[in-house]
Computed example of a mutant assay.
Amino acid sequence: MTKKQLFCMILLFGFVSSKAQQNSGKYSVGFAYGLGSEFNNKDYTFENHFYKLQVYYLLKEAKHFQFQILIQPEINFAKHQLLNLYFVKPEAADFEHKRAAYTQLKDIREYVMNIGFVVRKPIGKTFSCYFLGSIGPMITDTETERMSKGFAFADVLALGFSADIQSFQFDIRPSLRHVSNAGLGNSNAGYNTKNIEFGISYRL
């Protein structure tokens, strides 16, 4: 991640946090870390870990549920390698060169702006469980046999469990993630990963 990109993420997070302080009680800000890997397959490997800034906004609180908007700027560090060289078809231009290049282990950086919706069910005064669905635009810095370099989307579905301790909330959430570019690039097979995330946020 470049200094300019890091500065932009911090600036955005600071701006949202300052706005949040004007609406005390509805906002929470925090941080999450996660890691994961692809579902077992014979075509490729994909391992990742990621960091997210988190801004929650309480949209509505009903009798049994809470509804929140979640914004998560993310940087994802991944390692990927093509295992099945026949994934690159002979009819592809310069296929032998591509097979040789794509079967090398690659480091990939992904920069994502996740925008999600949370449905939360409180369990007593301390605990809660929730469902999270998010989608966000993404920039990936490396071309692979499965996806072109540049613009793409990241989709996440997660089930989470939270514990509230004073003004802090601690989260753990298993998640499923799909990354693809919706056909905007030459390659769009994408990646599917299973992940686990750990987060902490502070209620303003």
Rank of each mutant, 00 (worst) to 15 (best):
residue 114 N to P: 06
residue 79 K to H: 09
residue 142 T to P: 05
residue 156 V to P: 00
residue 169 Q to L: 07
residue 26 K to M: 07
residue 201 S to N: 10
residue 95 F to H: 04
residue 75 I to C: 02
residue 163 A to E: 10
residue 104 Q to H: 08
residue 154 A to H: 01
residue 56 Y to G: 11
residue 16 V to G: 05
residue 18 S to G: 08
residue 32 A to Q: 12
residue 148 S to K: 02
residue 63 K to Q: 12
residue 192 N to T: 05
residue 47 E to Y: 12
residue 72 Q to K: 11
residue 134 S to P: 05
residue 160 G to V: 01
residue 6 L to I: 12
residue 26 K to G: 10
residue 3 K to Q: 14
residue 191 Y to R: 00
residue 152 A to R: 02
residue 63 K to I: 13
residue 87 F to P: 00
residue 76 N to H: 07
residue 166 Q to V: 06
residue 55 V to F: 00
residue 21 Q to W: 09
residue 45 T to A: 04
residue 165 I to E: 09
residue 92 A to M: 12
residue 56 Y to P: 11
residue 180 S to M: 06
residue 62 A to V: 07
residue 73 P to D: 07
residue 133 G to M: 07
residue 194 K to R: 06
residue 120 R to N: 13
residue 110 E to C: 09
residue 61 E to Y: 11
residue 185 G to L: 14
residue 196 I to Y: 08
residue 122 P to M: 06
residue 87 F to S: 12
residue 76 N to K: 08
residue 27 Y to T: 14
residue 87 F to R: 07
residue 74 E to F: 02
residue 90 P to R: 08
residue 181 N to M: 11
residue 80 H to K: 08
residue 44 Y to P: 00
residue 64 H to S: 15
residue 5 Q to E: 14
residue 35 L to I: 10
residue 163 A to S: 10
residue 9 M to K: 08
residue 185 G to P: 01
residue 141 D to E: 11
residue 84 N to T: 05
residue 122 P to I: 04
residue 172 I to R: 02
residue 64 H to G: 13
residue 6 L to S: 13
residue 195 N to L: 12
residue 78 A to P: 01
residue 9 M to E: 13
residue 108 I to P: 02
residue 118 V to D: 12
residue 79 K to N: 11
residue 51 Y to G: 10
residue 22 Q to I: 15
residue 71 I to Q: 01
residue 111 Y to G: 05
residue 194 K to W: 13
residue 158 A to D: 02
residue 65 F to Q: 06
residue 34 G to N: 04
residue 189 A to V: 03
residue 131 F to P: 09
residue 18 S to V: 14
residue 13 F to H: 11
residue 34 G to Y: 00
residue 66 Q to R: 13
residue 73 P to W: 03
residue 141 D to T: 03
residue 122 P to Y: 03
residue 163 A to M: 14
residue 149 K to A: 12
residue 72 Q to G: 07
residue 189 A to F: 07
residue 13 F to R: 04
residue 174 P to R: 01
residue 41 N to A: 10
residue 130 Y to K: 01
residue 191 Y to K: 05
residue 103 T to D: 11
residue 77 F to V: 06
residue 38 E to W: 00
residue 75 I to E: 14
residue 1 M to L: 07
residue 203 R to G: 06
residue 52 K to Q: 15
residue 163 A to V: 13
residue 44 Y to Q: 03
residue 170 F to Q: 01
residue 159 L to D: 03
residue 111 Y to H: 06
residue 161 F to A: 08
residue 200 I to E: 04
residue 18 S to L: 11
residue 102 Y to S: 01
residue 39 F to P: 00
residue 132 L to K: 02
residue 139 I to F: 15
residue 153 F to A: 08
residue 60 K to C: 09
residue 109 R to V: 09
residue 120 R to W: 05
